[in-house]
């Protein structure tokens, strides 16, 4: 399958602290990779390296742009873990979604009516059509997440990166979100960081465990024993027809 991205022996971190060591990873078209690992293990750092927000200390990233993309960042759509923004900032839902087209990286420039149709389409997909002119500060947490997802996908990126998109949305939207992602995956590769591997496991296709090093697991089921080998101590997971988790005892 067509390659989009290749990380080769990446070492990265902040200031003097190395967080990621010797990372190798290939992302291909139609991939849906779940990234798991303990807090502080470097999941977000990995995303930032791929996005070009952090320069790696050493190693190499290769991007393979399909046809009409011309630079590394513009072919990636990104939904950050927590967008901190000013609730009073004078910007509407429609404007935030359209800001996903801010980059001049795409060659085709669209007319206003084309933009309008595109925006309607995205808002419709996210169930936000009625909120086009609503101020961003008037939305609920789940709605805000939808708007930022809209911003990430309006440029029709080849790769969509999501950092714990389920961390502050309501349950109802969580399910809808993964259904939307499943549809999007038909046209774009997806990398998804999640702490809740139980819920996402039926949607993702492969798993990458990140805890300083990265272990790629080419299927969507993983056992506790494998996680141990991968040095990836997280709570999970048993698989069956219905994914479920074993929780701690109530006290």
């Amino acid at each position: 399958m067509e390659k989009l991205l290749k990380l080769d022996k990446i070492n990265a971190g902040y200031e003097h602290q190395t967080i990621l060591k010797d990372i190798n990873l290939e992302v291909k078209k139609q991939d849906f990779i779940g990234i798991i690992g303990p807090n502080g293990g470097g999941k977000t750092t990995l995303l930032k390296v791929i996005l070009g927000l952090i320069k790696p200390f050493s190693g190499k990233i290769d991007y393979f742009f399909p046809g009409d993309f011309k630079d590394s960042r513009t072919f990636i759509g990104y939904l950050p873990q927590q967008v901190s923004f000013d609730k009073k900032f004078p910007i509407s839902v429609g404007e935030v979604v359209l800001s996903g087209l801010i980059s001049s990286g795409r060659k085709s420039t669209k007319s206003n009516s084309e933009l309008n149709i595109l925006l309607e389409e995205i808002l419709n997909k996210l169930g936000m059509t009625d909120h086009r002119n609503t101020s961003i500060g008037e939305l609920s947490g789940g709605q805000i997440q939808r708007v930022f997802l809209g911003r990430a996908i309006i440029s029709q990126p080849a790769l969509l990166i999501l950092d714990e998109p389920d961390s502050f949305v309501d349950n109802r939207f969580e399910h809808e979100l993964y259904e939307i992602l499943r549809q999007l995956n038909e046209t774009m590769a997806i990398m998804l960081v999640s702490h809740d591997i139980g819920t996402v496991s039926s949607y993702i296709k492969t798993i990458a465990c990140v805890n300083q090093s990265l272990h790629y697991h080419p299927s969507n089921s993983i056992s506790s024993a494998q996680l141990k080998v991968y040095n990836c101590p997280i709570d999970i997971i048993t698989h069956g027809s219905v994914p479920h988790r074993v929780l701690h005892e109530h006290k």
Binding site: L51, G52, L53, D71, R73, T74, I76, Y78, P80, V83, F85, D86, F89, I91, E95, V96, L98, S99, I102, S103, G105, R151
Partner: peptide
């Protein structure tokens, strides 16, 4: 206008988009 609005709203995102 648009760039000023979008950068002011979310600098980090604008950076990720090569602005």
């Amino acid at each position: 206008y648009k760039k000023i609005l979008f950068i002011s709203f979310d600098e980090e995102y604008a950076k990720s988009q090569n602005i």
